[in-house]
């Protein structure tokens, strides 16, 4: 008789990082472990303003399911999140708001610009639209498309996972990073 409960046997676990293992111990560097943990439990903050936000809704819901990548938990507060997903046109009126949200996030934080508008202003080369969010905050990954398909958003998300997984723990204290932040006027 078949069991009343079915188990998902197709679970794919993340590969362990390189290291030394022996009986009862496994040694590796902090960077790798923390990177692995962070990359697979990213808390995204959706900053959806327009059309790309609707595609993000599709990405989140059952068909494409962003939760598969460890991003099940959408934090709707910048304080708890570590990935800012900017989706849609950011106007000049919205620019300061976006910057404020970015500043409220705790380090380490990453930013993904989804769609042509967030990346470069897109077709809206107009007096009221910010020509790419990288004018006010630093961006890690750009996803092209108007709007990008959910697959493209997922791809951008996986690129972020790569970045997060490989990031050195010292990066945020480096002079280079501080110079980048200073170029945006962020202390």
């Amino acid at each position: 008789m078949a069991r009343p409960v079915q188990y998902n046997t197709k679970i794919k676990t993340v590969e362990a990082p390189q290291g030394y293992s022996g009986e009862g111990f496994f040694a590796t560097s902090f960077d790798k472990v923390i990177g692995m943990a962070r990359a697979n439990s990213i808390w995204p903050l959706p900053f959806a303003t327009s059309c790309c936000g609707i595609e993000f809704m599709a990405t989140m819901s059952a068909h494409y399911d962003l939760g598969r990548f460890g991003a099940e938990r959408l934090g709707f507060t910048p304080r708890q999140c570590d990935l800012l997903m900017v989706m849609g046109t950011i106007s000049k009126k919205m620019g300061p708001v976006l910057r404020q949200v970015y500043l409220q996030m705790a380090e380490p934080r990453w930013v993904i610009a989804v769609g042509a508008c967030a990346s470069s202003g897109g077709i809206f080369d107009t007096y009221s639209v910010l020509q790419g969010i990288d004018q006010v905050i630093p961006v890690d990954v750009y996803v092209p498309g108007c709007p990008p398909r959910p697959e493209a958003i997922l791809d951008g998300f996986m690129r972020i996972q790569e970045l997060v997984g490989q990031e050195s723990l010292r990066r945020r204290h480096s002079d280079q990073y501080k110079a980048l932040m200073n170029s945006y006027g962020i202390e």
């Binding site: 303003t49 950011i90 106007s91 009126k93 919205m94 809206f124 107009t126 007096y127 009221s128």
Partner: peptide, 11 residues
């Protein structure tokens, strides 16, 4: 309102 004003009419 106006947080994503994109100037459609001017375009």
């Amino acid at each position: 309102v106006g947080y994503i004003h994109r100037a459609f009419e001017k375009i």
